[in-house]
Simulated assay, not measured.
Amino acid sequence: MAETKMNVQLIAHTQVSRSFLDTFVPCGDETDGQAVALTAIRTCYSANKPTEIVAKEGAKYFGSKASDGGAGTDADRLFRHIVRSGHSSTLEHISFTFAIEGVSRALLAQLTRHRVGFSFSVQSQRYVRMGSDDRSGGFDYVVPDSVKGSTVKEALFRAAMRSHQEDYDALRSQGVPAEDARAVLPNAAATNLVMTANLTALLSFYSKRRSGKGAQKEISDLAEMLRREVESVEPWTSQFFEAAG
């Protein structure tokens, strides 16, 4: 049993297929996500087939400056227009998969309230035994920032964690199965999960959970870490996270 810290890592994201690459004529440093976004958006308005859009229209959008006077290419102008007009369902075709480690069960309860556009695979307290003598070495836990830095508060909090662990171990020693003994584990108990979400869903999540929106700090920190991971592979999304909320 030990204190743990949140870690977020992007493990997969939308990339164009090998066959689509044959029609992909780069005009600059556009990303796969931008190619998918352009294809989805222009499919709604173009006489060209989806498989033809990047080949026939890519130069127009990726190869020229934004006609609205804004930053980036005319593709960036189109993406801004789509978001402003509320047609952001076209960005649901771009997805990201994250490994999220060392978050509290309290955060998990908040996170899984965001259902549309999200998929979750969560470490099970039923199948992963959390006893002191188990492979896990006991449950790890997350200490809230409001507790840290105070000798008295930290002592009380850590004593509570030890008590929960002792209760869990005692129940297991009496033959109580892990799926029932887990009932005494606290909201602070840490968990790990894999989460996949599309870009539209992530922007909605960020607008509600970013710092300054009244969300608990742990989930606000998660929102910022998810944003950084997305922007690391799709930098053009930064303007939409900035404008969210």
Results as ranks from 00 to 15, higher is better:
Arg210Lys: 11
Val194Ile: 08
His87Ala: 11
Lys213Met: 15
Ser211Gly: 08
Phe240Met: 10
Arg228Gln: 15
Thr151Arg: 12
Asn187Met: 11
Pro26Leu: 14
Arg209Asp: 00
Gly138His: 01
Val116Gly: 05
Leu193Ser: 00
Leu91Gly: 07
Leu91Ser: 00
Arg158Tyr: 02
Asp76Asn: 13
Lys60Glu: 15
Asn198Tyr: 01
Val143His: 03
Met161Tyr: 11
Tyr127Leu: 09
Asp74Ser: 14
Val25Asp: 11
Ser119Ile: 06
Val128Pro: 12
Phe24His: 08
Pro26Glu: 00
Asn198Leu: 02
His81Lys: 13
Arg115Glu: 04
Arg77Val: 06
Phe240Leu: 09
Glu234Gln: 07
Ala170Asn: 08
Leu226Asn: 13
Gln165Arg: 04
Gln165Ile: 01
Phe20Arg: 12
Glu234Phe: 08
Ala109Gln: 12
Cys27Thr: 08
Thr31Val: 09
Thr237Asp: 10
Trp236Asp: 00
Glu242Pro: 06
Arg105His: 04
Ser173Asn: 05
Thr112Gln: 05
Asn187His: 05
Val128Leu: 08
Gly72Ile: 10
Arg115Cys: 00
Arg18Tyr: 15
His81Ala: 07
Arg209Tyr: 13
Pro50Met: 07
Ser64Gln: 14
Met6Ile: 06
Ala160Ile: 07
Ile41Val: 09
Ala160Tyr: 08
Val194His: 01
Glu179Cys: 09
Arg84Cys: 13
Thr4Tyr: 02
Thr97Arg: 03
Ala181Thr: 03
Phe20Ser: 03
Val230Pro: 02
Asn48Arg: 14
Val54Arg: 13
Tyr127Pro: 02
Leu226Ala: 07
Pro50Gln: 03
Leu202Cys: 12
Lys56Met: 13
Gly131Ser: 13
Asp169Gln: 04
Val103Phe: 15
Leu91Gln: 10
Ala223Leu: 09
Ile41Asn: 04
Asp29His: 14
Ala40Val: 11
Ile94Phe: 07
Arg42Glu: 05
Val194Cys: 02
Leu78Ile: 05
Phe24Gly: 01
Arg115Phe: 14
Tyr141Asn: 01
Ser119Glu: 07
Val8Cys: 06
Lys148His: 08
Ser132Gly: 07
Gly33Pro: 08
Ser104Tyr: 02
Ala106His: 13
His93Phe: 12
Ile41Gln: 03
Lys56Cys: 07
Arg135Lys: 14
Leu203Thr: 06
Ala99Thr: 06
Ala106Pro: 08
